[in-house]
Design a protein around this nucleic acid. Structure first.
Length: 576
RNA sequence: CGGGGCGUAGCGCAGCCCGGUAGCGCACUUGGUUCGGGACCAAGGAGUCGGAGGUUCAAAUCCUCUCGCCCCGACCA
């Protein structure tokens, strides 16, 4: 492709609305433009990168035996009502209404649609297992779109759904998908980890998220050298056992703490560390009020509380409810003398002595409260948000926390949708059974952003060959010099004919200008044809990533490129 | 949804407090010089100042409403 024949509107300045590197660069390098909040147009160069990722995904999905389909983006509301998600999905679900006033949804994901298809078409265990996938535009009315295409409202996603006769078959496909995803992200040249995750609202039991480690990521990943890694929501860490033996228990005493509500206020008022406080958090767990005890310097992880209580949702109790069950106002709750409420505690509380707790009375706390003597808890477990340096649950070494961009997630859904939507098949014994399902997503456009986020420098994008819009930029320094242009055309033709995707910068611009643009759009290799090297009968080949430049005679260029950019590298099966 | 910021030429911004001529850089057009890391000179085109209403002799500027975009936060005692 010739630069003057395509459309690559590069920008010298950062767009004012961009915050992170990938967003700025995608706009500056002319990959995309914003239409409205969280909605983007892909320009020719950007689309090529998107298509590279799509192709890799297709190849790996096909290899894993998944069947490509294309489902509608417009769904009738009935389907969503049937699965129950019409009411639980919330404001993220776009809900357009047609001219007959009939409600619809724009698909944020397609479990309902595929389940409907499969229940109509598949009757027998003989047709199972089967996996369908599609690469489609998805809509999610994000509460706050940001970071360009990392959190967009309209985006491209690959979603796959598998149907099985039983859990074992599901697990086999799950593992195959895990392997396919690993291959996909490897081929995209990403540094990533697959972490244990929380299944959230989609439901299901077993799930991994594929996270690209990047400072600009929105998710936090807890990981340990031993190989354990999990999302912050899911990550468990072990309590630190105190080195000294149990301190002697002092006499419990009620003290006045006027107006001191937060752990920090109470601790500083009493001149004690926040870690000597026990926070008593009251939650409504599907009708039951539960008190959760955690160390004063920690935060409760609601997902963990949900799991411990085996409920789908927990919400903080309102002040009226707190007054009713504890007898005291919000901010002064404590476990001592608290009756008629289930008390659960973080395991760390077991190792705390002579603690400060609320007295369930306006402006009063107890000091020197001790578990076992002054209060009890019905159940112990890990309830707090993991923190950098906490001991790993597996090996005890300190864990670290890094930020990441979630580019893929795989779920074992089980029978959640087949049950609610009455999707059955007949087993070998002629028995009607619910399909066992799995679902698997990859954010295609987000993956492109993640690649850039992880691979750029001060001058622009540094594309891995596998997802680069083109492999090589041929850059004639002076388009008005006949020998230069003749050679440039020859080089361009021969590279193209040899299967390299080549961009010829045939613009009549000054060299510096073209060099800057070349760095900005970041193609892996640049071939400069200038009068200087030409005088020696040579052209220059420059590696965008390393900056390494070599001068070679034009007739050795194909040989050189074959070494630098072999097919395995262009396909992402190897990286250089 | 709460808080904050911003909408002025294609892009990035100044002007607004203190009302009167709409300006700068980049980009674009023409001519010339230049030509290995975002050139220079000259001339030029381009803006309903986000929108509506109001105050005023006069509004980008003051007031009211409204739309859009960006950032932070969203119940953690």
């Amino acid at each position: 492709m010739r630069w003057t024949r395509t459309f690559i509107p590069t920008l010298k300045e950062d767009p004012s609305d961009a915050e992170i590197a990938s967003h700025k660069l995608m706009v500056r390098a002319g990959l995309m433009r914003k239409l409205t909040s969280g909605v983007y147009t892909y320009l020719p160069l950007g689309l090529r990168a998107v298509k590279k990722v799509e192709r890799i995904v297709r190849e790996e999905m096909d290899r894993a035996g998944a069947l490509e389909t294309l489902m509608p983006i417009l769904h009738p509301a009935e389907l969503w009502k049937e699965s129950g998600r019409w009411d639980v999905y919330g404001k993220e679900l776009f809900r357009p209404v047609d001219r007959h006033d009939r409600p619809h949804a724009l698909g944020p994901t397609h479990e309902e649609v595929i389940t409907d298809l499969v229940r109509r078409e598949i009757r027998s265990y003989r047709e199972l297992p089967v996996t369908f996938y599609q690469i489609q535009t998805k809509f999610r009315d994000e509460i706050r779109p940001r970071f360009g295409v990392v959190r967009a409202r309209e985006f491209t996603m690959k979603d796959a759904y598998s149907f099985h006769p039983d859990e074992q078959s599901l697990r086999e496909t799950y593992m195959a998908m895990h392997a396919a995803y690993t291959a996909v992200f490897r081929r995209c040249g990403l540094h990533f980890t697959a972490v244990e995750a929380d299944s959230g609202a989609i439901g299901g039991d077993y799930t991994h998220e594929f996270m690209v480690l990047a400072g600009a990521g929105e998710s936090e990943v807890v990981s340990c050298g031993c190989g354990y890694s999990a999302t912050l929501e899911r990550a468990e860490t072990a309590p630190v056992r105190p080195e000294a033996g149990p301190q002697s228990a002092a006499a419990m005493e009620k003290v006045s703490t006027p107006g001191m509500k937060t752990a920090e206020e109470v601790a500083s008022f009493l001149g004690k560390p926040t870690s000597s406080l026990i926070k008593t958090l009251l939650y409504d767990a599907q009708g039951e009020t539960v008190a959760a005890l955690i160390p004063g310097d920690r935060e409760l992880n609601e997902a963990k509380l949900r799991h411990m209580l085996r409920v789908d949702a927990v919400t903080m109790a309102d002040p009226e409810r707190i007054l009713e069950v504890t007898g005291g106002p919000m901010g002064f709750s404590g476990p001592v003398g608290l009756e008629g409420v289930r008390l659960v505690a973080d395991s760390r509380v077991e190792f705390m002595h002579n603690c400060v707790v609320g007295a369930n009375e306006q402006d009063c706390h107890y000091v020197n409260a001790n578990l076992g003597r002054d209060f009890e808890a019905a159940q112990f477990g890990d309830l707090v948000v993991a923190r950098e340096g906490d001991p790993c649950v597996r090996c005890g070494k300190p864990v670290s926390i890094q930020r990441g961009i979630e580019v893929g997630q795989i779920f074992e859904l089980g029978t959640k949708y087949s049950k609610s939507m009455k999707a059955h098949y007949l087993d070998q014994a002629g028995q009607e059974r619910d399909f066992v399902m799995g679902c698997y997503g990859i954010g295609i456009t987000r993956t492109v952003a993640a690649v850039i986020e992880q691979s750029h420098d001060n001058n622009g994008i540094v594309w891995p060959a596998s997802v680069a819009p083109y492999h090589i930029e041929v850059l004639p320094l002076n388009v008005n010099d006949e020998p230069t242009m003749r050679l440039a055309e020859e080089v361009y033709e021969s590279l193209t004919a040899s299967g390299y995707e080549t961009l010829l910068d045939d613009r009549d611009q000054r060299p510096g200008f073209k060099f800057k643009d070349a760095d900005l759009i970041g193609l892996p290799f640049r071939v400069v044809i200038g009068e200087k090297a030409l005088g020696e009968g040579k052209v220059e080949v420059r590696n965008r990533k390393t900056g390494e430049t070599t001068k070679i005679p034009p007739d050795r260029l194909l040989e050189k490129m074959a070494a630098l950019l072999p097919e395995e590298v262009r396909e992402g099966r190897a990286h250089n």
